[in-house]
């Protein structure tokens, strides 16, 4: 039962107020894309043991989607941020690196 801070409402929202939306920062491939790119977009999802960027919707709150940088093992939340970005903000990256200097950074929208 996680709690995540909704970056829009500023409240610590209970997991039951939220709806999980899977991996964040996917790049959409539409008509004209290769079968491989499209397949990756549609089906391939990262499932890391450790740092993960996720989509969440504050479904019974403000209704907005946001992103969370979270550790799937320790459940630590490095931060939540607007969904309206193509990659995690610098502050979030720094927060992760501070805890995990060896972390290589997010793997954005590429085949995994």
């Amino acid at each position: 039962m996680l709690i995540l801070e909704c970056p829009y409402c500023g409240v610590m929202a209970d997991e039951t107020d939220l709806h999980g939306g899977g991996e964040a920062h996917l790049k959409r491939y539409g008509p004209g894309s290769s079968d491989e790119d499209f397949q990756t977009y549609l089906f391939h999802r990262a499932n890391p043991k450790g740092v993960h960027f996720e989509r969440w919707r504050h479904v019974s709150g403000c209704g907005k989607w946001f992103h969370a940088a979270r550790n799937t093992m320790t459940l630590e939340v490095y931060g939540t941020y607007s969904a309206q970005t193509y990659e995690p903000p610098k502050a979030i990256i720094n927060a992760v690196k501070k805890k995990h200097p060896e972390w290589e950074g997010p793997n954005m929208g590429e085949a995994k």
């Binding site: 939306g21 959409r28 989509r55 919707r57 479904v59 209704g63 907005k64 989607w65 969904a83 309206q84």
Partner: peptide, 13 residues
């Protein structure tokens, strides 16, 4: 409704 909001908020913001 959620489907529309999702696309508006996360893809075509």
């Amino acid at each position: 409704y959620a489907w529309m909001e999702e696309w508006l908020q996360t893809e075509w913001w």
